[in-house]
Nucleic acid binder design. Structure first.
Lengths: 270, 270
DNA sequence: TTTTCATTGCGTCGTGATGACACAATGATA
DNA sequence: TATCATTGTGTCATCACGACGCAATGAAAA
């Protein structure tokens, strides 16, 4: 699964038949200048919330998958493209959540150092050395269907348990934190799970998902009452056999009602 | 209050002693390219929600106040700067809410037409003619303290009643709509009013604010119970005399508790 | 001065959502 | 066959909220 491993400053946007030098030279013509996007891709596996990270080449650091926006490309489309490239998944839940525009967030020295290690030289005014403002997106994907693929700047693309992530490239830890905060707030307004779980799932599995996102234990019985109360679940006649104990019922989402709830929001407030 | 009225493509960022030509020539060096910000500035007056709009020169159109980001400027600071320039108010509630990145949102022909009317010519690759991605901010300000000032691209800066706004420049109507939608959602999580009302206010005034934002009538007695329940209000011993009927008590916010509620959120959900 | 009356302050009632907890049913494992 | 953690369902008290009643207020009208 490992690729040739180009430089991190390509951020996954290099066209297949181009060389590093080509992209460094042409990037300024291809992309919207000074603007990037970063994706916090959440998955759920073995009752743990996971985030997809890239191990950067020539540096012992992990980073969020990101990319640049082509000059005539919609930014939503650009985010979708990055996700498709990293996970192979097409039609996924994707949400813009914040813009990070601190001028100090860019790290010119880091890039210069990386290029030096790679034996690449660029002009002093090269586009990659400019300050970058980045748009944060978070995505919810089905862990089972995702095929993590490193980009040309990285040597690995792996799922990380949220609790194990200590430090990330630049301000990516901060971006991740903000994404999680937004996700937690979204739980109150929008149904979640369709994009993170398999088609069929048990109530304990769904509950674990909520508990992991919220980092909080929930009462099993109250959770069931609340979820079924939303009216977006269909209880199947099958049960999940194979567990060590009583076999729980399988559920699936009523997609029509689920999408209606997504559009209209769950509980009102005012 | 009306100023000389330069072109709209300066978006309020032109330095005072520079000519139009100067900024058009230097903008590419001064600002982060292809990126702008637009502010939806809400005020509250005579029981109506107002939005600050600019009437553009050489066009019978109104637009949101906006601006560009200096190359080494934080985007939050840039938004604050724009607000300070348009309203004279310093320390205001300001919140980023969305990035608008549709490549079709920019209107090259419009700018060319405007410049033609103004007798200004620029190179075909001038920075102002590029595609622009804009970051939306909304602000809540005390109507009484705001002194609307047009920027160099506009001939007027006025408060508009939300209901009277029909069409706006480019996609600004859409931006306004999204801002209002966000504000309505925020009502459920955050206290509001400190930035929109005077220091002292009556409960009916606060209720009117909520009703206007939500575009919905609320029960007077239930509203009072709910608001006092938040514990962020201080009831003063004064009443507002002069009304045609029973004088209502005056309230003010307990700023310490108000800010605590801002930071922690109001009702929990999960 | 007295009366009028819209507005204000405070309270009640019923409903539904929520948190805490009880108990029987299930089904793989011992 | 017995065990026992887990699951399905229900109960109860509490609380938030919407709908509404009623007396107090105080400027305007009589």
């Amino acid at each position: 699964m490992k690729t040739a491993g180009f430089l991190c400053y390509f951020r996954g946007t290099m066209a297949i038949n181009k060389t590093k030098q080509d992209v460094l030279r042409d990037g300024g013509k291809l992309f919207v200048p000074s603007l990037s996007l970063d994706c916090v891709i959440f998955g759920f596996h073995e009752n743990q919330l996971k985030v997809l990270l890239l191990k950067m080449k020539n540096a012992d650091q992990w980073a969020l998958p990101g990319g640049f926006i082509y000059k005539e490309e919609d930014i939503e489309a650009a985010a979708s493209r990055v996700l498709k490239q990293r996970t192979g998944i097409d039609d996924i839940f994707l949400q813009q959540f914040h813009v990070f525009g601190d001028p100090a967030r860019s790290d010119k020295k880091f890039h210069l150092n990386m290029m030096k290690k790679d034996g690449v030289t660029v002009a002093k005014d090269n586009w990659i050395l400019k300050r970058f403002i980045t748009v944060g997106y978070y995505a919810l994907v089905d862990f089972a269907f995702a095929l993590p693929v490193p980009d040309h700047s990285s040597v690995a693309c792996e799922w990380w348990d949220l609790h194990d992530i200590k430090e990330l490239f630049m301000d990516h830890k901060n971006i991740l934190h903000k994404a999680l905060e937004t996700l937690r707030l979204q739980l109150n307004h929008q149904p979640i799970g369709y994009n993170l779980l398999s088609q069929k799932f048990t109530m304990p599995e769904l509950q674990k998902l909520y508990e992991t996102i919220l980092d909080k234990k929930l009462d099993r019985r109250n959770f069931q009452r609340r979820m079924t109360g939303y009216g977006i679940l269909k209880r199947l006649k099958e049960t999940r056999k194979g567990g060590a104990h009583k076999a729980p019922y399988l559920y699936s989402f009523d997609l029509r009602k689920y999408k209606k709830a997504l559009a209209e929001g769950l509980q009102g407030g005012w």
